[in-house]
Design a protein around this nucleic acid. Structure first.
Length: 273
DNA sequence: CCATCATCCTGCCGGC
DNA sequence: TGCCGGCAGGATGATG
């Protein structure tokens, strides 16, 4: 499922393929996922893409005249760019036509969303305004992290998945980060000492960075904008490895349910605090 | 206010 | 082989 590294991969691809492209039209067979409605895209006619950026797990396409198209892939969304005007892909529900290329938004579970808005409203309209800090923001220091979580209570995994604290972490990278720092994801955040919290922060960054370097985790069918898989799934220690031997100590990886999510960890390498 | 649960959707997998 | 229940988990809104 697309998390920060997968979304960053798509954004990088989109930047290379659609900046400078001129919007022509959008077509959709699942209009309830297009907000506020499909006709509002008419104002984009003949406007050029000037930038593509990521915010949390959101893709933000910046057009001329302060118009923004925002996409969230949610669980199963996928973006494929093709110059072939006749191209079709499985579960292709929305297609954005540019003068010289085609952006397919495919989504088997139809949880994904696409919004259009202007610069004054897009953060509010899409929910981007609620997001916490970007993990790669230079302001995201240990001091910031400490302040962010010092009054929080509950399990570590809940903190990691809270988009209003840190934007972009999802289930896979949360579990992997916990493995890196040897902290069980069901540890109470209030029980962690300074060294453990520093280790956790370092591990979050390491997991996300590695995901980006490997162009995403394709364990549940993630593909980049060219339709290619990432390779980070080959480097996972716990996610999707229930019952398999830990790559460090051979102990069988366990899986529990935590804050409503499947959660994998090594009972030997990771400690519950 | 917080934690848990249901909802949105469909594909896929294991069990019978 | 085929049917069915359960699981997958990002985000939001309802419920306890």
């Amino acid at each position: 499922m697309p998390e920060l590294p997968e979304v960053q991969t798509v954004v990088t691809d989109l930047y290379q393929t659609i900046v400078g492209q001129t919007f022509q039209s959008i077509k959709s067979d699942w209009e309830r996922a297009v907000l506020p409605n499909i006709t509002s895209f008419a104002q984009l006619k003949n406007k050029k893409v000037i930038d593509v950026v990521r915010r949390g797990k959101f893709i933000v396409i910046v057009f001329q005249k302060d118009l923004f198209v925002v996409i969230h892939l949610r669980m199963s969304g996928r973006i494929i760019v093709s110059e072939d005007k006749q191209s079709q892909f499985p579960y292709g529900h929305h297609r954005i036509e540019f003068a010289n290329t085609l952006l397919h938004f495919c989504d088997s579970r139809k949880f994904g969303r696409v919004w259009i808005s202007d610069s004054d409203n897009y953060e509010q309209f899409t929910g981007i305004y609620k997001l916490g800090i970007e993990p790669f923001d230079e302001q995201f220091t240990y001091e910031y992290f400490e302040k962010l979580i010092q009054k929080k209570k509950g399990v570590v995994k809940k903190i990691l998945l809270d988009q209003s604290l840190i934007a972009g972490i999802g289930n896979i990278y949360a579990d992997e980060a916990c493995f890196y720092c040897g902290i069980r994801p069901d540890s109470k955040v209030e029980n962690l000492d300074q060294a453990q919290k520093k280790n956790l922060l370092h591990s979050i960054i390491k997991a996300l960075k590695q995901g980006i370097e490997n162009r995403g985790t394709s364990i549940t069918n993630f593909h980049d904008a060219y339709g290619k898989k990432g390779t980070n799934q080959e480097l996972l220690y716990v996610y999707g490895r229930k019952g398999l031997p830990c790559l460090k100590c051979k102990t069988s990886i366990e899986k529990i349910r935590l804050v409503g999510r499947g959660t994998a960890y090594c009972p030997s390498c990771q400690i519950e605090y």
